[in-house]
């Protein structure tokens, strides 16, 4: 008589012996590759710009690049809005107080974590494609347990967004040019990215058990939830607007081209 295989629970515990590491036939490597190239290029550009120590301010129109805001070293000159407590030294970025927090905000961001765990750490490179590492303990121990500090980086990012808004307002006092438009687009996108953060969603109302008792927080949570669904897009858009804003101001400061003025 034919029998069925081993009974459930009582038999062997071996997985199916499938030799191929993955049987995926689509181009699963494309998305991590694009992420790798995109993030790598952006980090390279930002590093070069941050340690360039010039072409960050257009005095005529008060344009300050977000990579140097707030400017707090001795090279800042008229760009310094908050004093210059730091000496000028080639290893100290002009925005030495804010850049570490911005880096931390993006490093611990729930979207970027997915992006770099997949593209850089290959853990896993794509769904149903094997992990590139033999052992895995996730975010349970040092140093990755510090990913849980994301909300502190979020608080810092809110303060930095206020400073960026101030930069845009200050530039607005000189009239209106293409640079102002670029600065405002950048600031609005930065706010959208910051407010769409998963920690913000939690603080806004996600932590509540009874939405009906907190109607205002519920509405705020609903708003943040809508933004939060676009967190990935906003993460990439802000990388683009940051680089574009910086490049435009660098071009103006270096006299490669002149600002397109609409008023004044």
């Amino acid at each position: 008589m034919t029998t069925t295989a081993t009974k459930p629970g009582g038999g062997g515990k071996a997985r199916a012996a499938i030799a191929a590491r993955t049987l995926r036939t689509d181009r699963w490597w494309l998305a991590p590759l694009v992420t790798f190239v995109g993030l790598g290029a952006w980090v390279a550009y930002a590093t070069v710009r941050v340690f360039m120590h010039k072409w960050f301010y257009v005095e005529q129109y008060h344009y300050l690049t977000p990579f140097y805001s707030p400017c707090i070293t001795d090279v800042c000159g008229p760009a310094a809005e908050f004093g210059t407590p730091l000496p000028s030294f080639f290893l100290i970025p002009e925005a030495a107080f804010t850049l570490p927090f911005l880096l931390l905000f993006r490093l611990t961001c729930y979207y970027y974590r997915k992006a770099y765990y997949r593209a850089f750490w290959l853990s896993p490179p794509a769904c149903a494609v094997p992990d590139g590492h033999r052992r895995y303990s996730g975010e349970t121990r040092f140093p990755l347990i510090f990913q849980n500090a994301h909300r502190y980086a979020f608080y810092a990012a809110v303060i930095i967004s206020v400073i960026n808004t101030w930069d845009a307002v200050r530039a607005q006092t000189t009239g209106l040019g293409l640079g102002n438009v670029i600065l405002w687009v950048n600031v609005i996108m930065l706010w959208a990215y910051t407010l769409s953060c998963h920690s913000c969603r939690h603080i806004a109302g996600g932590r509540l058990k009874h939405f009906s008792q907190h109607p205002v927080r519920y509405r705020f949570w609903t708003f943040v939830s809508k933004l939060n669904a676009r967190h990935m897009q906003l993460a990439w858009i802000t990388l683009g607007t940051l680089a574009l804003t910086d490049f435009y101001i660098m071009g103006l400061a270096a006299d490669w081209f002149s600002d397109l003025r609409i008023i004044n």
Partner: peptide, 29 residues
């Protein structure tokens, strides 16, 4: 804590439950 939110669970869910965004990340928070 083992979850590193690479979102494959959400990608394969046939019921399109937002497992990572609506359950795991809120629980982590």
């Amino acid at each position: 804590g083992y979850c590193n939110i690479t979102k494959c669970c959400t990608e394969v869910c046939p019921e399109h439950i937002q497992i990572t965004d609506n359950a795991i990340i809120p629980m982590k928070e």
